[in-house]
């Protein structure tokens, strides 16, 4: 554990060569350190997301969380940016991948970087971490209860979420999946479908489903928080990144 950290907001080059803000947290010291891309959830680039980045820094990683809602207003409060994103119909997959690729480039360009980078996301970010494993150059990816990997959102909704499991043949790194047995989206049946497809494709992965936990069990500021699952989940994440990024 590193007691001394540096955490700050930086500017990176994201999708379409546009500059966006990102939260960077790293241990003090010469390093070199592996990196972690921390993908914020749909409610926004909020304080709990930045707290996760600082946790990774304390564990010896350079963590970066790009503000995927930067274009709605770089100085907006997190809740206002999320409201703007809702009104706009969220962000595109293309924009996410471009911004995430920019964050990964930024990490690898730091003098204290080992060059190894993992990705992690929760909820909508879990789905996007799965996307990163399919489409980007990452060395390990963690999907925490990402929905709409094998399913679609209801057709009557104006903004459809399409399944992304068809991209799985392009996965180029190990995947850790953490899920709740009481989650309805992704349901245990959907998790089993993803597990089976990754096995069929010969993709290295390990999935864990926690009993007495539903969606969002890592969220310390919400009633859905489940201490046993969250504590064990953090152990699994740090073990996974330790094996694949160090």
């Amino acid at each position: 554990m590193y007691q001394g950290l540096l955490a700050e907001t930086v500017t990176i080059v994201g999708n379409g060569d546009e500059e966006i803000g990102a939260y960077l947290a790293r241990p003090l010291g010469p390093g070199p350190f592996p990196g972690v891309l921390v993908i914020h959830h749909a409610p926004g680039w909020d304080e709990p997301t930045k707290e996760i980045a600082r946790r990774f820094a304390a564990e010896g990683y350079i963590a970066i969380s790009p503000n995927l809602y930067h274009r709605f207003g770089p100085d907006l409060a997190a809740d206002d940016a999320a409201a703007a994103a809702r009104a706009a119909g969220w962000i595109t997959t293309e924009q996410f991948l471009g911004d995430a690729a920019g964050a990964i480039r930024f990490l690898r360009g730091l003098p204290v970087s080992t060059g190894n980078v993992g990705s992690i996301g929760y909820c909508s970010g879990g789905r996007q971490s799965f996307l990163a494993a399919c489409e980007l150059s990452v060395d390990a990816a963690v999907d925490c209860y990402g929905a709409f990997v094998v399913s679609s959102s209801p057709p009557e909704l104006p903004y459809r979420m399409e399944p992304i499991i068809d991209r799985a043949p392009k996965i180029s790194c190990p995947i850790l999946g953490l899920f709740g047995a009481e989650d309805k989206n992704p349901s245990p049946d959907e998790v089993a479908q993803i597990d089976a497809e990754l096995t069929r494709l010969g993709k290295e992965h390990e999935f864990h489903t926690f009993e007495n936990a539903g969606h969002g069990f890592f969220a310390v500021d919400r009633p859905m928080y489940r201490v046993e699952a969250a504590v064990q989940g953090w152990r699994l994440i740090l073990d996974f990144f330790g094996r694949h990024l160090r």
Partner: peptide
């Protein structure tokens, strides 16, 4: 305009 969603809230202590 009213923009209506059912999702994780920002402030209310609700799932």
């Amino acid at each position: 305009t009213a923009v209506v969603s059912v999702d994780h809230p920002f402030h209310a202590t609700l799932d």
